[in-house]
């Protein structure tokens, strides 16, 4: 059974149609990349998978559970790192972790365990006891990622996890994600603009443009399909082909 099944999602805002039949599947233990230009509908797709938004048509199954009917069960299995999301600035890093741990567990010992895991992932040392408004952007993003992964979700949904981070922070974040999947065999869906990141992290990639999935495959498959030397080139060609078809 695939971890996630996304079938023919349609969604519009007012008159603007944003998703026009998005479908894909994600296997357990797989890192799946959504790659697409600004406004392609990546965030909208991810929001529908988390149950924050409703699709106007189509369906989503997460480990066999249907969105939005079984959204509550799905939320226990998933964890979401929204685009540009931040942490609570008046709380310390530690308190931020504790709050989210408390939402996932009732058992104080388990909460402590989760928080310890979070601290380990965030790896920001003594700063954890200080209010997060004193953190740098990279530290906050790492804390946010730690908060997302520490609860050991079966599916982690990461919307542009490295956006706005410098090279070193980005590498750290990527390694955290990679290690997480290796350790837990969980699935990850991530969106990105960064081809390098996608090539390094993702087992499979979907190109999305103008609300449609135009190509899906491993980075290798996509490159050879378009006769491109790198993913960037393949992406540009895929978009051109899609435009020609439309």
């Amino acid at each position: 059974m695939p971890a996630v099944v996304v079938k023919d999602l349609w969604r519009s805002f007012g008159k603007k149609v944003v998703l026009r039949g998005v479908s894909f599947e994600v296997e357990e233990g797989e890192i799946f990349g959504l790659l697409g230009p600004n406004g392609a509908g990546k965030t909208t797709t991810l929001r529908i998978i988390t149950g924050i938004l409703r699709p106007h048509k189509g369906e989503v199954l997460v480990y066999g559970k249907r969105i939005p009917e079984e959204a509550e069960e799905v939320r226990r299995l998933t964890s979401y790192l929204p685009e540009e999301s931040d942490v609570y600035l008046r709380l310390t890093g530690y308190e931020n972790l504790k709050f989210f741990a408390m939402l996932y567990s009732d058992d104080p010992r388990e909460i402590d365990e989760i928080v310890r895991k979070g601290a380990e992932i965030a790896d920001i040392g003594d700063a954890l006891g200080k209010p997060t408004k004193t953190y740098s952007k990279g530290m906050r993003r790492r804390l946010a990622l730690a908060r997302t992964l520490m609860v050991r979700p079966r599916l982690a949904i990461l919307d542009e996890p490295t956006s706005g981070l410098d090279v070193y922070s980005s590498i750290k974040v990527r390694n955290i994600i990679k290690k997480f999947v290796e350790e837990t065999k969980a699935s990850v869906i991530l969106s990105s603009h960064n081809m390098l990141e996608v090539e390094y992290l993702c087992h499979r990639v979907a190109f999305i443009a103008d609300g449609r999935i135009i190509e899906v495959g491993t980075p290798e498959e996509l490159k050879s399909h378009f006769g491109a030397s790198n993913l960037e080139e393949a992406f540009v060609k895929a978009v051109e082909v899609a435009k020609g078809a439309a």
Partner: peptide, 14 residues
């Protein structure tokens, strides 16, 4: 405004 709401909405809290 501070982009913390969506995380909360996607968490298991009712």
């Amino acid at each position: 405004e501070r982009k913390t709401l969506e995380t909360l909405l996607a968490s298991p809290i009712k």
